[in-house]
Simulated scan of single mutants.
Amino acid sequence: MTDDTSGTLDEALERLHTAGPERRGWLSNHGPMAVEALVRHGQGRSVHRWLDYYRDKLEEMPDARTPITADNWREALGDPRHIADWTVYFGHELADRPWREVLALWWPRLLPGIAGGATHPVIRVGHAVRTLLDAPGTATAPRTAELAHALGYWAARHAPLPPLGRLPGPASGSAADALAAVAPVADQSGGIRDRLPQLTAFPAWPVEQERGATAPDAATAPDAARDRLAQLVRAATHRYLTHGHGEPVMLVHAATAPNAVLRTLPALPRELWAPSLDAAWAASAAVTAAYGPSQPLPRPSAGAALKGAAAAGANVSPEEVIAHAAAHGDEHAIKLTDTALDVARDAVATGEDHETALAAALHACALIDSPLA
């Protein structure tokens, strides 16, 4: 649950909703995602100071053009000129219907364009849904408005990946081996809009023969999809520790995009969980192919990554890690830390390794320049 007894998150969202979801024609507004992560992990006291720094990166919402309707939405899908129109449309939809109904209707429509906007729209949706799930039936106006902004951004930037072939999946069936089998695109000289069209095929994953398992039946398939999605988030987070140097900012999304999907599953009908896993894999693999380096680097420990920590070498706490990210200030470092804390929490619950996830978060802070330094 979010640590928001002061109302800090709602105040921050209200400040941010005067701005559009992008700046300079393409770069994403990360403000709503970063402040949600900070508040959730007990760093609410730093939010308004962080927004004071971040406001110079914000631009006003573009002017509305043509209202989105039940008759013309298909023509407007994927057209960034309609960002404001889409936000208004979802605002009306969420005022008239329960937010879960709106989400369930639009999730399968938007899912094929999960890579649009460099995966930022789906990540923003994941943060918005997480806040609404915190208080069933008592969603505040700013949190509902945030879902409208997030869905509107996704609809405006909806961009399906090119048709992709299926390569043999890893014999182990593991998500980590599947990511390792993703081949980098040939030309890595441009941005993500230049790289994604080069994609041709991904390894098949998940692989049903993993550990000799048979395909799940209809009753258990959604649970299997959720578990495998959690495995993907864990693998992508751990992989950042050894491969994040390939492009420290963009490779954050290989973990945060599937985690946004994982966060959204509890709000969706169970029949949407399996296709959500497939889309999350495509998004994570696409970012990995676009920016992954050819060779890994040695893996630092969490203690080694947190320079100057009294506990250097062992037992770095989640509280230290999020405090470090908040002090660092970069929005991507904050968001990867947020995902890493999810992974570490689940690992502790199952008695597995949680230090690697914490080390990945600290590694992001080391690789990405601090805007507050």
Rank of each mutant, 00 (worst) to 15 (best):
D4W: 11
D4R: 07
L9V: 07
G20P: 00
G25M: 11
W26R: 13
L27E: 15
P32K: 08
V35N: 06
V39A: 11
H41T: 06
H41W: 13
G44C: 04
V47Q: 13
R49M: 07
W50Q: 14
D52I: 00
Y54G: 00
R55N: 07
D63V: 07
A64N: 04
T66L: 06
P67C: 12
D71W: 11
E75K: 13
D79C: 13
R81E: 15
I83T: 15
A84W: 03
A84N: 14
D85R: 14
Y89R: 12
F90L: 10
G91W: 00
L94N: 02
R97W: 02
W99E: 03
W107T: 08
W107L: 10
R109H: 12
P112N: 00
P112A: 00
G113M: 06
G113D: 03
A115H: 01
V129R: 01
V129M: 03
R130Q: 14
T131D: 09
T131K: 09
L132F: 08
D134F: 07
G137S: 09
L147F: 13
R157P: 00
R157H: 15
L161N: 01
R166E: 13
G169D: 12
D177Q: 06
A180T: 12
A180I: 00
V182H: 08
P184Q: 05
D187T: 05
D187V: 04
R195E: 05
P197R: 00
Q198G: 11
T200L: 00
F202E: 10
P206I: 03
V207W: 04
T214H: 08
D217M: 05
T220P: 05
A236K: 01
Y240I: 04
T242V: 15
H245Q: 09
G246F: 10
G246D: 03
G246Q: 05
L251Q: 04
H253R: 10
N259C: 11
A260D: 09
V261M: 04
T264N: 07
A267S: 12
P269G: 09
P269I: 01
D278I: 06
W281L: 02
A282N: 06
A283Q: 06
A285S: 15
A286F: 10
P293K: 02
P296V: 14
P296F: 04
L297A: 15
A305L: 04
L306K: 05
G308D: 05
G308K: 08
A309K: 10
A309V: 11
A309C: 09
A310I: 07
A314H: 13
A314Q: 14
A314I: 03
P318G: 04
P318W: 15
E319S: 11
A326T: 01
A327N: 07
D330I: 00
H332K: 07
T337V: 10
D338W: 09
L341I: 08
D342T: 14
D346N: 11
A349C: 09
A349F: 02
T350F: 02
G351M: 02
E352T: 15
H354W: 14
T356A: 15
L358Q: 07
L358R: 07
L358V: 13
A364F: 01
A364G: 06
I368Q: 07
